[in-house]
Each structure stands twice: as structure tokens, then as C-alpha cells.
């Protein structure tokens, strides 16, 4: 009987030890749902050494008041958008795609999707910045005036193909995927989001990216404006062009 009891005890101890390791082993392999562990952040910005940053507002604008209220043209433009204006011409959208899983994610497609369309506001157009010498290369661009609005890859001014033509972006657990997209205006004032298609292992997924809960908005810089203004080279004063 003692021998039997010893056998039971030893077996139980062994089983307990095995179970503990088994528990640890399976827990460490618990899966994260692959199709919902990608996160996207977006940021709208301009490179004032190569881009023209512009805003269209409905109605006239008092540039004297702008000069007093804002320290420079750049922040004045942002203030006008907060007050209801729309960025115009072009914008850069930096996309950061963060992968919460161990399995790398390939970004297989990027395209703009228009969700609302309006004619450009008729009032004033204000702009700052512009190319200052050589470096104007933008690798990835979306033209809102095109039919497909898919991201295209460029080599200088030559179009190479629809993304991904040269370099497929990967989002890995230890390094998010990052790319800057230069978005160019179309014929109307568009509200849009960006659809990102991705693949993880054998699973395909789609992610919608917007501007912190709101759609991106871009108006045309060409076309009828009642008045146009440019910042001067110190970006603190506005000069009327027309």
C-alpha cells in the first residue's frame, strides 16, 4: 500500500511538473487575431523647402488681422483651416502602420477613396512656401484628379508604376511601416480617406485611415478665387497677388 501511494504521489508530482510547463508553453503561443492587430496613424504635413502650402477660404480675408494674430504664415494657414477653410493644392500624408503581432505585414495597396465632393470655395486663396532648389523628388503620390486615385511610385518625374512597384513596405513588430504620400488636388474640393490593403501570412485585410476621426480634405489650388495672397520670404507678411 505504501508502495502504491508512493507511485501515486510520484506520478502526480511528475504530472504537475509537466502540466506547469505545458501551461506556460501554450500560453506563450496564444494567438493574436492576425487581421485586426495592425494600427494606422496619419499625419498631414508640408515640407516648406519643396511644397506650396495653401488654403482656400469662403469669403474675403483680412490679412492685417492674420499678421497680428499669428507669428508666421504657416500657423496662419492652420488657423484658417480651423476656422473652416480647406487646404488646397497638395498635402503630404505620413502613414505609420504599427504591427502588434509577430507576423510581418506587407502593405499591398494604398489608394484614396472620396467620400464627399464639393465645388471649391469661391473666396480667397492664401499660400506659402515653394521649391527652393534641387530636391523635388517625391516617391509616392496620389492624384485626386485621376480615376483610380491609387498611390503611384515615381523615380524623379517618371512614373514607375502603381504601388508597390519598387519597394513593398513591411510593418514588423519591432519597426512600423512608414511612408509619405504626396496628395495632389483634383477638380473639386474632396473629402477622402485612404484605404490600405495588406497581407499577413495568407490572410488579406483592409484598413481605413483618416485624419484622427475626420476625413482628409483638399481643395483645388487652381480655379476662380476672388483674391490670392502669398507669404513673403520671411513668412510673416502677406502680399496680395490679385
Amino acid at each position: 500500500m505504501v508502495i502504491a501511494a508512493l507511485g501515486v504521489v510520484l506520478s502526480t508530482l511528475l504530472a504537475a511538473a509537466v502540466t506547469t510547463y505545458f501551461d506556460v508553453w501554450t500560453s506563450s503561443r496564444s494567438p493574436v487575431p492576425a487581421d485586426r492587430a495592425i494600427h494606422a496613424e496619419s499625419e498631414v504635413w508640408w515640407d516648406l523647402t519643396r511644397d506650396v502650402k495653401a488654403v482656400r477660404v469662403a469669403g474675403p480675408v483680412d490679412v492685417g488681422k492674420l499678421e497680428r494674430a499669428y507669428p508666421d504664415g504657416d500657423t496662419a494657414l492652420d488657423g484658417l483651416v480651423e476656422g473652416g477653410g480647406v487646404y488646397a493644392g497638395m498635402m503630404r500624408i505620413r502613414l505609420t502602420l504599427m504591427n502588434f503581432t509577430k507576423v510581418p505585414v506587407s502593405i499591398t495597396g494604398v489608394r484614396a477613396r472620396v467620400i464627399d465632393e464639393e465645388p471649391a470655395p469661391k473666396g480667397a486663396l492664401l499660400s506659402c512656401g515653394g521649391p527652393q532648389g534641387g530636391v523635388g523628388i517625391t516617391r509616392v503620390r496620389i492624384d485626386l484628379g485621376s480615376a483610380s486615385k491609387a498611390a503611384q511610385e515615381y523615380d524623379g518625374d517618371d512614373i514607375v508604376g502603381q504601388y508597390p512597384a519598387q519597394e513593398m513596405q513591411l510593418a514588423k513588430q519591432d519597426e512600423p511601416a512608414l511612408f509619405d504620400i504626396r496628395v495632389e488636388d483634383g477638380k473639386a474640393s474632396y473629402s477622402f480617406v485612404i484605404d490600405v490593403a495588406y497581407t499577413q501570412g495568407t490572410k488579406k485585410g483592409r484598413l481605413v485611415v483618416d485624419d484622427a476621426g475626420k476625413p482628409f480634405r483638399l481643395a483645388p489650388a487652381e480655379g476662380d478665387a476672388d483674391a490670392t495672397y502669398r507669404c513673403d520670404h520671411t513668412t510673416t507678411r502677406w502680399a496680395k497677388q490679385r
Binding site: 508502495i3 501511494a5 508512493l6 501515486v8 506520478s11 504530472a15
Partner: peptide
């Protein structure tokens, strides 16, 4: 034999439980 029988029976039971 008693020892081995007890050991293996317990092992089987515990494995089933796990």
C-alpha cells in the same frame, strides 16, 4: 509491480484531466 501500476494509472488519470 504495485508501484508501477499505481504510477501509470495515476499518470493516465492526470493526463486525461489535463
Amino acid at each position: 509491480r504495485v508501484f508501477l501500476l499505481a504510477f501509470f494509472v495515476t499518470g493516465v488519470l492526470v493526463a486525461g484531466l489535463v
